[in-house]
Nucleic acid binder design. Structure first.
Length: 422
DNA sequence: TCTGGGGTCCTAGGACCC
DNA sequence: TCTGGGGTCCTAGGACCC
């Protein structure tokens, strides 16, 4: 029987802020999404005040002000770096692991029979907190879906106190009974009402539900989910992450943008970020999609338009991609609209050596690549955007740039922002 | 006034081919 | 009057995840 341990950081972004700001302990804290839009991480104290996941900041402002909730803009360089530290610590405890997201990892504990798994998990929790400052919870089970459920209870139940082992089938059904169906991994906001309206309200109900019903609604994924709930594993540990199959970059604007020039500057910046990601994983893009949109929350209908181009020769060259992107943007830009967002999606990625060359290509591609390598090197050392293209507009003169009114310092990734200890 | 961003997988259906 | 069958490939859209 395989054994999976799902390790999940508690209120991860908030915990990262607390590491460098210990006076936040015990206080309500939230971290906002990009552009200071929504609450995407909440301390337990903030949850207790009724602040929901993904709630717009302007809606919760009264609660924030009345209770002295500490607010942070999201600081992804910091969270990314803290995540790496947590993952490195976890790697010491298992022969194989899958980094599932910025704050979660599946550990393969198959064959750790001689060990008391719950004790071992507590040791992991202790070590991660000691070495990184981040508190974690652990759920253990023979399938990933059950490990997710175990983790959720480990986090919530005072009795479990951060660790729950469901490898023995004895308490499994009890755990499933205590798990609302919408909390099951793979049941989202569409499927949940479908099942609850048919009397399938808990994970246990879902496990026992007629398989034809689940299969009819969810196809192959429903079959797998029911099997996983019974303890038969269908999803293996993916310990060798493949390259991304697509790369996208988009941001909401601080205030709506109306001119082509500003829209085009923002797009150029996002394309250059995306091209960096491509080069980082040594991919070249074949299909480039550009889109624009206006607000979804206004009385007039939202305008959304996108256009895709197939490049004659796949590329990861920033200026070349900007040129293509601008051409696409021209085709979908309509004046008189208040744009709130633009973005680029790179799809059909190929690797070096698979690039299909255009017979009539006149570009010196190896020279191009050397230039990009040099630029990436300089930016890695001097800070991103140290070298950029004029097409992005000048730093300090990009009024569309997202709001970040509550940002903490990049404590661990920028020499100029190290912590001062007095 | 103010509502995030980046991914994956799956399927249906159309285009096209023999 | 009456017009096949079986593939593949691609795309758009829908669902989910964090």
């Amino acid at each position: 029987m395989p054994v999976f341990a799902l390790v999940d950081c508690n209120n991860f972004y908030v915990s990262c802020e607390r590491v460098f700001n210990p006076e936040l302990a015990g206080k309500p804290v939230i971290v906002l999404s990009n552009n200071d839009g929504c609450a995407v991480a909440r301390s337990n104290e903030a949850k207790a005040l009724g602040i929901g996941m993904g709630q717009p900041f302007f809606q919760i402002k009264p609660i924030v002000e009345a209770n002295g909730v500490r607010v942070f803009s999201s600081n992804y360089p910091l969270y990314g770096d803290m995540s790496n530290r947590v993952m490195q610590t976890l790697a010491q405890f298992t022969p194989a692991m899958e980094v599932y997201s910025i704050d979660e990892a599946f550990l393969d504990l198959t064959g750790f029979k001689s060990t008391n798994l719950a004790d071992y998990a507590r040791e992991i929790c202790y070590t991660v907190t000691r070495d990184t400052g981040i508190p974690v919870s652990i759920g253990i089970a023979p399938t990933k879906t059950l490990a997710k459920i175990a983790n959720r209870i480990a986090k919530k139940s005072p009795k479990a106190d951060g660790v729950l082992d469901l490898t023995s089938s004895r308490y499994r059904d009890l755990a499933l009974e205590r798990t609302p169906v919408q909390e099951v991994w793979g049941i989202g906001r569409r499927l949940a009402p479908f099942f609850t309206s048919r009397g399938i309200k808990t994970a246990l109900d879902l496990k026992l539900a007629p398989s034809w019903l689940v299969q009819q609604k969810m196809e192959i994924n429903g079959v797998r989910m029911q099997k996983e709930l019974t303890g038969e594993h269908c999803y293996p540990l993916e310990d060798n992450p493949a390259r991304r199959k697509s790369v996208s970059v988009s941001r909401s604007f601080r205030t709506p943008v109306t001119t082509f020039d500003e829209l085009s500057q923002a797009l150029a910046l996002y394309i250059s970020r995306g091209a960096e990601k491509l080069r980082h994983q040594e991919s070249f893009v074949e299909n480039i999609t550009v889109y624009v949109m206006t607000s979804r929350f206004k009385s007039q209908p939202c305008y959304y338009n996108s256009k895709t181009a197939v490049l004659p020769t796949s590329s990861s060259d920033t200026p070349e991609l900007i040129k293509h992107g601008k051409k696409l943007l021209k085709q979908i830009f309509q004046s008189g609209k208040e744009y709130t967002k633009t973005g680029v999606i790179f799809s059909n990625l190929v690797q070096d050596g698979q690039v299909q060359f255009d017979l009539f290509d006149t570009v010196n591609r190896s020279k191009q690549q050397k230039l990009m390598q040099a630029m990436d090197k300089i930016n890695a050392r001097m800070g991103s955007q140290y070298l950029g293209y004029a097409a992005m507009g000048l730093p300090g003169r990009q009024p569309w740039k997202a709001a970040c009114n509550h940002c903490s310092p990049a404590y661990t990734t920028d020499w100029n922002q190290l912590m001062n200890v007095r």
